[in-house]
């Protein structure tokens, strides 16, 4: 096809105009995306601050309710109606407390204000307390809860932050029970490696997680089954909190699962080595004054 020079120039001009238009459209979209991103960051931060601020406003009355339910059980001992009502109030309030603890720790993690406070912990006792606190929930779902202690390591101590450790294991236990089938079992065990790392295993024999979904489960607000028909409780925060807390404690979390065959979660926590000790510079390190701002 023959075209004249004028036609060629006109066609080229047209094409240039089109690319200029596309480029300017793209710039507008890009600017809008950046604005949206900033808005998102701002709303995330507002939400986190709000949650860390209202923590005490909610925790205090809730603790009073749990305490009073206990008192009521003692006072009303002998009266079947009162005992069953008080134990129901206690169990529901404790469940609410667990959910709220998760929401608050998530807010603290997002605000960067979680500070591990490490102490020596008797692992078996700590795990026994945790397992006992889930007996009621497990019984309701007809799930057997077993704590398997190593024969010779019952006296093992670990240096870690108890509160964070409890939240990690509670979330794994809660999940294991929630996703167990009727009449199933959940087993909790631990070992201490030669390197001093604590390994805690939480095994269920429930629905399991398909390999494609295994990375996704640590995301926020993700429950593999969604919509109004979903059959499992919770807000989908538990595993993302668990992962963030394990990261904070410089440990790792692994899962072994296949659909229909249950899931084994392994949490590996190194002994808390970072203490607030000003003189613990490395042997090979050289200490020097880097810079004095007062002179800058």
């Amino acid at each position: 096809m023959n075209i004249t020079d004028e036609e060629l120039i006109e066609e080229l001009l047209n094409r240039f105009a089109k690319s200029r238009k596309a480029f300017s459209d793209l710039s507008v979209v890009n600017r809008k995306l950046l604005e949206m991103n900033e808005l998102l960051e701002r709303s995330e931060s507002l939400k986190s601050n709000f949650l860390s601020n209202i923590r005490n406003e909610i925790n205090n009355p809730l603790n009073v309710i749990i305490g009073l339910a206990g008192q009521l059980a003692i006072v009303g001992a002998g009266n079947e109606d009162i005992s069953s009502l008080s134990s129901l109030i206690g169990a529901e309030a404790t469940h609410l407390d667990f959910q709220l603890r998760n929401i608050f720790i998530a807010a603290e993690l997002e605000a960067g204000e979680v500070n591990p406070r490490c102490v020596k912990v008797h692992i078996a006792t700590s795990l026994r307390d945790l397992v006992d606190s889930f007996r009621h929930t497990a019984a309701k779902k007809n799930v057997a809860l077993r704590l398997i202690l190593p024969e010779y390591e019952d006296g093992s101590l670990a240096v870690l932050d108890v509160e964070k450790f409890q939240i990690i294991i509670s979330n794994l236990l809660s999940n294991a029970i929630e996703y167990s089938t009727d009449g199933g079992a959940v087993e909790v065990s631990f070992s201490v490696g030669g390197d001093g790392c604590l390994h805690v295993f939480v095994q269920d024999h429930g629905v399991g997680i398909a390999s494609d979904d295994q990375l996704r489960i640590f995301d926020r607000f993700v429950q593999l089954e969604t919509g109004t028909t979903r059959s499992h409780l919770g807000q989908g925060l538990g595993l993302s909190i668990t992962k963030s807390l394990v990261d904070l404690m410089q440990g790792s979390i692994e899962l072994n699962s296949s659909l229909g065959e249950g899931t084994l979660f392994t949490v590996i926590l190194p002994p808390c080595s970072i203490l607030d000790d000003e003189d613990s510079f490395s042997e090979a390190g050289n200490l020097f004054i880097f810079d004095d701002m007062s002179e800058a």
């Binding site: 510079f281 390190g285 200490l287 020097f288 880097f290 810079d291 004095d292 701002m293 007062s294």
Partner: peptide, 9 residues
């Protein structure tokens, strides 16, 4: 003071 000390190793 804004002073930052650095140890390396």
């Amino acid at each position: 003071s804004g002073v930052v000390m650095v140890g390396k190793g």
